[in-house]
């Protein structure tokens, strides 16, 4: 990070957009906190689809607000945003290429028997322990998992 002070005009020019009227950062922070409350309360309603929407939808909105107002990506050069989007797209390619093998346990002419067994065993163990029993059930699997 051994950056020197750039020629005086450069920083000013880059921040013209918020040079004249300063963004009200505290207001943005307030919105972020309100969103946080919603994302915590959402799951309490107990509807799985609603949980997904409030949890991940709001995460995206929060990230967008931070990127736009705190990181000033919108007044940055266009290619910076494109670069970050490209990196995200690369990760999507990765997940898309890997998911058929890792996420799914059955495909065309092959099955991942080990994973299917693990899921069945795990679900059975969950049932046996009963939902809501918070104490002592997780270590039930611990002996098998502990290596040494």
């Amino acid at each position: 990070m051994s950056d020197t002070s750039t020629p005086a005009p450069a920083p000013g020019a880059a921040h013209d957009a918020h040079g004249g009227h300063e963004t009200n950062y505290v207001k943005i922070w307030g919105i972020l906190l309100a969103l946080l409350v919603v994302s915590v309360v959402g799951p309490m309603l107990g509807h799985p689809v609603l949980t997904m929407v409030t949890a991940f939808g709001i995460a995206f909105v929060k990230a967008f607000l931070v990127i736009k107002y705190f990181m000033h990506l919108t007044v940055e050069k266009k290619y910076i945003g494109l670069l970050l989007l490209t990196m995200l797209a690369i990760m999507l390619v990765f997940v898309a290429g890997v998911a058929p093998d890792v996420m799914k346990h059955e495909g065309q002419r092959w099955t991942n028997t080990a994973a299917i067994e693990a899921v069945e065993k795990g679900l059975k163990a969950n049932e046996a322990a009963g939902h809501g029993e918070h104490h002592g059930e997780a270590p039930a699997e611990a002996p098998a998992a502990a290596p040494h």
Binding site: V102, V119, K121, G122, A125, N126, H131
Partner: peptide, 10 residues
């Protein structure tokens, strides 16, 4: 992994 293993919810 999480989607492939619903039992992890517990």
């Amino acid at each position: 992994h999480r989607i492939g293993h619903p039992e992890w919810a517990s």
